Computed example of a mutant assay.
Amino acid sequence: MTTYAAFLRAVNVGGTGKLPMAELRAMCESIGFSNVRTYIASGNVVFESKLPERSVKAKLEACLATYAGKPVGVLVRTGAELAAVLAGNPFGSAAPNRTVAIFLDAPPPADTLDRVSGQQTEEIVLGAREIYVHYGEGMAHSKLNIPAAKTGTARNMNTVAKLVEWTAA
């Protein structure tokens, strides 16, 4: 069995995409995942499966599309991959609530940094299948636009650390 963390895009954000976490857990169990746990109401779920990552993603996205009546993006990492994201955080000394990993399905394109707009004091570093961003002055007034992140989803380092703890347990 492999322990995975899945991150849903646009769930319980801004009053749209409502999905009670109890229903997300039930969905995951209905498609054969075990030891399912959700973390905060923003679409974070940890579970075990014998399936490879691609199959986990496909099954979860299909189930969510049936529920929501539209596609719901899901980004998946194994526990080991998630631990590597946390260990690879280039802003480890910065406030974890002001640093995010934007999870992607594939490595960020080579021109990612060239295509960024609206950057002020934010710092950006590319990872394996992530984009790390440190919002030194917070996200509230940021105008940062990263086109390569359009299909990804961000989680702050507090959330990543908690899910690393859960996937290691």
Rank of each mutant, 00 (worst) to 15 (best):
140 A>T: 14
5 A>L: 15
125 V>I: 05
61 E>T: 10
153 T>A: 09
30 S>D: 14
94 A>G: 00
23 E>T: 15
88 G>D: 01
77 R>T: 03
72 V>N: 04
122 E>A: 05
54 R>N: 12
92 G>H: 11
85 V>K: 00
159 T>L: 01
18 K>A: 13
104 L>G: 09
22 A>C: 09
112 T>E: 04
129 R>Q: 15
117 S>I: 08
123 E>M: 12
36 V>Q: 07
157 M>Q: 00
130 E>I: 01
139 M>P: 10
161 A>C: 05
72 V>S: 02
146 I>L: 08
152 G>Y: 05
115 R>T: 14
86 L>T: 01
64 L>D: 01
89 N>F: 02
135 Y>R: 02
52 P>K: 14
54 R>Q: 13
147 P>I: 08
64 L>K: 00
126 L>N: 00
24 L>P: 01
96 P>F: 04
155 R>T: 02
141 H>S: 15
96 P>V: 03
76 V>Q: 05
104 L>W: 09
126 L>C: 11
149 A>C: 06
120 Q>C: 10
106 A>G: 13
75 L>I: 13
82 L>R: 07
152 G>N: 07
13 V>F: 04
138 G>A: 06
103 F>R: 01
130 E>P: 02
90 P>M: 04
24 L>Y: 08
137 E>F: 11
79 G>F: 00
81 E>C: 01
55 S>R: 14
164 V>L: 08
118 G>E: 07
52 P>L: 12
21 M>S: 03
54 R>E: 15
139 M>Y: 11
86 L>E: 10
126 L>T: 05
98 R>A: 11
63 C>S: 13
113 L>Y: 03
103 F>P: 01
107 P>A: 10
82 L>H: 03
96 P>W: 03
122 E>V: 08
129 R>C: 13
63 C>K: 11
136 G>C: 01
115 R>L: 14
6 A>L: 09
18 K>Q: 12
142 S>T: 12
17 G>W: 04
15 G>Q: 00
90 P>N: 11
90 P>I: 02
7 F>G: 06
127 G>R: 05
116 V>D: 05
124 I>A: 04
125 V>W: 02
119 Q>N: 09
80 A>T: 15
159 T>R: 08
133 V>M: 00
93 S>A: 12
57 K>N: 06
61 E>C: 05
46 V>C: 14
63 C>N: 11
114 D>W: 07
124 I>P: 02
113 L>G: 02
